[in-house]
Amino acid sequence: MRIEGRRLLRALVLLLWAGFFFYLWLSGASTKFIGPRTSWVVPFGAIALGLTAACQMVTIRRAAARMVGAESSGVKPGVKPGVKPGDAFGILLLITPMLVLVAVPDAGLGSLAASRKTSGEGIAGLTSILPPEDPDHEISFADIDWASESEEYAVKAGISEGLEMDLEGFVTGTGEGTFSLTRFYVSCCAADAVPYSVTVESPDHYDDDTWLRVSGRLGRAGDEYVLIPDVIEPIDVPKDPYLY
């Protein structure tokens, strides 16, 4: 039975992508790329790509059977089996994201990305943004940042000097007796991540991108809320590196 190469390659690429989406879905690894608002694309992609791959497989069998039938009756097939250079290049392009992820296993947003992206600083000072009314809302980087900009926000969020905090983030620069602890907030995917930083008053030196858990209490340096640490400990990169 002669199989048309282009259909076969397409089916294999669809299977690869379906497998990759299933992996992202079942392992929870999708949180590295996609936020919860759009996380539905992962199971949808896994199932839809899997079904499309299965349908493409069926057409391979039928096309091959038709080709055999046509050849046995002396008719030349309209489409020759085989992969043309243009098809091969297109298929290579489509698997490039998976190849890049294999080549760069530690891909992630760190201090370089934080220096390139627009920070969300200043929002509360310029607008009437208020803390969420959710009673389970956990105070974190953005809240502290906005509380430094707006006293109204600080009061409504319950942020004040002496508040005990426990923050996990990565280092994005050191100053005199301080360093910045940063975390990205994601709306949709890593492409829209916005960095928020909290200044930690500590003479210790940490390399950029070192992940730390800092426990302590809030203090003030001018208008800015800063974190005065009791305990600083290095941690592994969390499975879900973003906040939402």
Partner: peptide, 22 residues
């Protein structure tokens, strides 16, 4: 670091866009 940043943004856009393309 540049390649790691590029990879995560590149992959995230493709992962999000491919189901919509489909």
């Amino acid at each position: 670091a540049a390649l790691q940043t590029f990879t995560i943004i590149f992959s995230a856009i493709v992962i999000e866009a491919l189901p919509f393309i489909l």
